[in-house]
Amino acid sequence: MSHRISSRMIAALLACCAFLGAARAVAAEAVARLDGLPAPVLVNQFYECLLLVTDADGAGLPGLRLQIRGRMPEHAHGLPTAPRISEESGGRYRIKGLSFNMPGRWVIEILRDGKPLLRQELTVQF
């Protein structure tokens, strides 16, 4: 009897672990990367780039509600423009209107439903 109970407990525990693992996978499933920004990025130019968002298996994630914001960690201000993100196809999103008006370290953040999805640092030069 006690043996059966402990088997059930172990099975439940395993199921629970499997569920938690799956939950973690859901939480971490979106993988995002920026593509197409030149190096170096220069001040006072307009840039356009691609944002690729996939699940853990590499399949594109369409239909996401994404926002972009940026800032200079050493300063009090954000980006000089309000860039726009538009969906192209299957997890490909195009960012237009990106610009930087000061040299130095900038941080770009992509938000999905208001939550951080990607954080990328870049150094802007003259």
Binding site: G78, L79, T81, A82, S99
Partner: peptide, 9 residues
């Protein structure tokens, strides 16, 4: 482009 991507913060 300046007007299209104007920042309103």
């Amino acid at each position: 482009p300046k007007l299209l991507y104007i920042k309103k913060d």
